[in-house]
Design a protein around this nucleic acid. Structure first.
Lengths: 286, 286
DNA sequence: TTGTGTGAAACGATTCACAGCT
DNA sequence: AGCTGTGAATCGTTTCACACAA
């Protein structure tokens, strides 16, 4: 801390809040749709509805970009489309490479909306020699050996990793060494990268687990609601013994058994599926 | 809407913060890896590093689950794996349907890690009659007509939408009517769903746009650093000299020059690629 | 002595509510 | 009369820093 500015120096310096940046693409999509229907202006209320946020948030977001609206009227659709595109850097185009052409990589390569905006798939790269030369989405797959050359010749700064988890870290290192500074990672691993490199993660299994959590809670509440006064229906999360997992049990599992002294190794082991749980997904990570 | 308990009743009642929930799967993955290497205990410091977060955050997160650690020692790996799995609802299994078996849907169906945890693909559904019966990932694709039957017979509560954007809203409505209460949406649209239904979105194009934003900023900073005080170093084609936009522009006195009159239609039109920008991706949404 | 668990401070994002422009 | 733009209030998350248990 005391050491001057620590990692990620002044990156956040002049700035649009991260949460706002993450919503700009959403607004842009809604605006593009309006633009296609030749709608000339929108109110914050309408646009917010189309983007699935509330209008106060949208107005605040736009206020970070400048004053692009007209009081009493709304926003000029075309003008906003342009301003947001520019702010996001979509007025220039970004060559992108996809590394790992398995099921997912191929799906990504075929994704239309990819090239629709400023993005252009510059190359498809895979480690399997058998893939080399094979056309995927009308483009020949190239071998990993040429990764560095491809990156530099095409001026690629954004890489998409769709390899198995085990290969991801190494691939990211090669990409970065070759000049890539932004990575979209579909492999289920935490990538460690140097400062100045941005990584965004897309992880199917994490998303499902989050849904499962809420789903389970719904079931618990339902049961609690239906099942009258149960000891710890909504109990305090008190540090004490079992209370803290009321919702968990849901359908009939005995809550008592669930909690045990932090020494119950046996139960814990039993709980894990004995199956081929491998951390590395077959070929399609996400 | 405001009838009695407003939307999302007491869902958040006794609660683990959402941000914490979103990190539990990350911890779980790191712990599973340790477990496989038969590591008996970890400190918050080590585990945090493996999960890519800082240790204070991790300890705070775990504190919401209960006191599962041992002071002076650390956390018992197996025990924590079990507790987190249980908290996330992964000790039961969740039948899932995937709707839209295009490139992406097929990739998802083939995803190994899917079934690895509590999730099981109960059915693959597609609207194309030509797909019906065809095996994907060792499973016959079924026709949309049978969607309701499939959902109820299998007790499915989680649905994955991998259809083109145009079909997503309708598919979500049918899923929900049939009993699904959690949706993972890969189609690039905002789904509107009733209260009590959870939706999570995975959107490739949004992720790329966020990266592009940061990428552009990096380029700008670099140029600014290298090339003295150049007005529009960041290649903004527009007159928007908005370089220093002072966070908040707080002190009134808007840098008027930065913004041209909200009437510049021409520029806006020019900015949009004339190409086939269609909002609906070919077959693979994400 | 070590490393967890947690109040309290700091920070960031969202929402409120209204002044001010059109 | 209407709708944006934005200070101020609120809420949620992260970080700090240290008491306390092993």
């Amino acid at each position: 801390m005391a050491t001057g500015r620590t990692h990620r120096p002044a990156t956040r310096s002049r700035g649009i809040p991260e949460a706002t940046v993450a919503r700009l693409p959403l607004y842009l999509r809604a605006l593009t749709a309006l633009s296609e229907r030749s709608v000339p202006t929108v109110s914050s209320e309408e646009l917010a509805a189309a983007a699935g946020v509330n209008s106060a948030k949208l107005r605040k977001d736009f206020s970070y970009l400048g004053s692009y609206g007209t009081r009493g009227v709304g926003y000029d659709v075309e003008y906003l489309v342009y301003q947001i595109s520019r702010e996001l850097g979509l007025t220039q185009d970004w060559p992108v490479v996809i590394v790992g052409i398995g099921n997912l990589g191929a799906a990504l390569a075929n994704y239309g909306g990819f090239s629709a905006r400023g993005f252009r798939v510059a190359a498809l790269i895979d480690a399997d020699p058998a893939m080399a030369g094979k056309p995927v989405a009308g483009m020949p797959v190239q071998h990993t050996d040429d990764l560095e050359k491809i990156i530099s010749e095409n001026g690629v700064s954004i890489g998409v990793i769709a390899t198995p988890a085990g290969a991801a870290q190494q691939v990211s290192e090669r990409l970065i060494a070759a000049g890539v500074t932004s990575i979209l990672n579909f492999a289920p691993t935490v990538l460690s990268v140097p400062d100045g490199v941005d990584v965004r993660k897309v992880d199917l299994s994490i998303e499902l687990q989050i849904l499962a959590f809420h789903e389970q809670r719904k079931a618990g509440e339902e049961a609690a609601a239906a099942g009258s006064a149960d000891a710890d229906a909504d109990g305090a999360p008190d540090a004490g013994a079992g209370a803290s997992d009321g919702a968990g049990a849901g359908t009939g599992a005995a809550p008592a058994a669930a909690l045990m002294p932090p020494a119950g190794r046996a139960a814990a082991a039993a709980a894990r599926k004995g199956g081929p749980d491998g951390d590395v997904p077959a070929v399609m990570p996400a």
